[in-house]
Write a protein that binds this DNA or RNA. Structure first.
Lengths: 318, 318
DNA sequence: GTGAAAGCGCTAACAA
DNA sequence: TTGTTAGCGCTTTCAC
């Protein structure tokens, strides 16, 4: 068995309460005792049992993270940034992936509650949140409009859509496909698409629209894309995310068909590995940081009222 | 506050012990009581408090996962597969990333112990494991030879190296660079490189060797690669992982220099997005599954003796 | 078959 | 400034 607070107390010849005080830096302790306890902890290589701490109710020092998948650089980078930043607050992280399934998202939420997380950062895109009571859990959402009083950290999708569309117009395209990477109805009001449309409609470009399901396996997506493109001769294809854009490029290469393909998100790896891709960058690192900050503040000061929405600028790449 | 076992007991008019028995399916319970308890749990939407369960010592139903980074498709896919598979055992996962830093790896290990994980799957590549006593924690390692009695699940790196080298020879190259993606000394005995050398040395090809540090940020890696390549005119560059290969390709394109570049790992996303990359595929999904199976078996039957090493075949892509 | 009660490691009143 | 003690929610003997 591992070393417990009790053994530290014995070793330091104090009570467990004193040890607890030293650990949590609470209340008055003489520096002599403090030293004795610290030495004992070091000597015995004591590590607190987080489960016991959680059991007590507060201070689980754990934040739950809900994301659709790690197999998308947007989300793996987001998670990475969040984790790094939470670590500076001495918080740990409990990760759940949903693949955008409502069922899975429910399970994630239960799992996180079962694990006594102090708050949740979610970037899953089902509408589960809307219908759920939060038992007072602080929650912050990534790029997702929710109806409840859950703060959203997003980037300016409307403007991002506009930027991309303007870029397309500059290149004198005449028949453009807007291809959404999620067709599951969660993006009914996709701001990116709205932005694109607002520009395209004011021009004399022709517009097609299509969507593929986010949760489909890659093979299925490729097949769907091929089907969507077959016969049609768009000279530009605007995707609502980078992964979809990259898949479209693959299919097009195979078809020996070379429209202009644009993405969205601009994660570091995509920007590095596909330096020519025209896309819109969300400042993922800054957004991650802000989400952590809001959440921690909310946890530390329960009456802290955050804004409903924090919006970051979207910037054109290429 | 959440619903506890106590409230379920009251609702079902039984003792908490009985509720516990129903939850864990242990001991004798009449089916009448069982039903009553189950109904009560459903009615109150009871979810067990995992912290309390962990506190008791056994059955934290959590496995710790240590990986270097999620920003490498090999590891994000590995984690994904592990998590999916552990879920079928009703185990949850606690993820730690180390970026191959020894310091971070130590912290991860402590964190996982603090969280009462029942076992650990590690694919980090420092030599921390070798010098550490495991307090009886079941551990299994991914692709990493350790000196202790920790089972390793790997693929046949020696043969993988050979396969790649043979492929190079087929293409009549004469000056090849072997570029390792980790120069931190953890791969002193890198089997992949050994395999390559065994073939190259038996031919009349010239060989160069270099390495870049795994933990460097991408920009730094690109600069290093440029430096390594400047002046030299290799007609083939064999990297020990895909990410390095892709970065090399970027630098080469920039330099308008077009050697044959090969990778290693063959994760799904790399194979999809770079269908022409010559690489060696490790069967990540199968390896993930086996690691979970070994670990769970070891947890359930403490006297289960696993083999020291499980090796999967490596297959050439392209 | 079921319940009472001890105890897991820790925190936080409350006493001293 | 420190110690005593009552829980936190759950599992598990040991009685009944």
């Amino acid at each position: 068995m591992r070393v417990t607070i009790k053994e530290v107390a014995t070793e330091a010849q104090v009570s467990i309460a004193t040890v607890s005080r030293v650990i949590n830096d609470k209340g008055y302790i003489s520096s002599k005792t403090r030293n004795r306890v610290n030495n004992a902890m070091r000597k015995l290589n004591y590590k607190p049992n987080i489960a016991a701490r959680k059991l007590h109710g507060k201070q689980s020092k754990t934040i739950g993270i809900i994301i659709p998948t790690l197999n998308n650089p947007l989300f793996s980078e987001l998670f990475d940034d969040i984790e790094k930043h939470l670590n500076t607050y001495e918080y740990q992280t409990l990760l759940c992936t949903t693949n955008n399934s409502l069922e899975k998202e429910k399970q994630c939420f239960e799992l996180l509650k079962s694990n006594q997380v102090e708050g949740i950062i979610t970037s899953s895109h089902t509408d589960f949140l809307d219908n759920h009571t939060f038992d007072g859990y602080p929650v912050v959402s990534f790029d997702r409009i929710t109806s409840n009083r859950i703060p959203v950290v997003k980037s300016d999708n409307l403007n991002g859509g506009r930027i991309i569309a303007k870029r397309i117009l500059e290149m004198n395209k005449s028949y453009v496909l807007i291809l959404s990477g999620t067709k599951d109805g969660f993006y009914k009001n996709d701001e990116r698409i709205k932005g694109m449309l607002s520009i395209f409609r004011a021009s004399d470009i022709s517009i097609g629209k299509a969507a593929i399901s986010f949760a489909s396996p890659t093979n299925r997506k490729l097949a769907l894309i091929e089907q969507i493109l077959s016969g049609k001769k768009y000279d530009a294809i605007c995707c609502t995310d980078d992964v979809t854009a990259l898949l479209v490029n693959l299919v097009c290469t195979d078809m020996n068909y070379h429209p202009l393909v644009t993405g969205y998100d601009g994660s570091k790896s995509v920007r590095t590995l596909f330096p020519n891709l025209i896309t819109v960058k969300q400042p993922i690192d800054q957004m991650a940081k802000l989400m952590c900050d809001i959440l921690i503040k909310r946890i530390q000061y329960p009456y802290f009222i955050s804004k409903d929405e924090y919006s970051f600028p979207a910037t054109l790449i290429n």
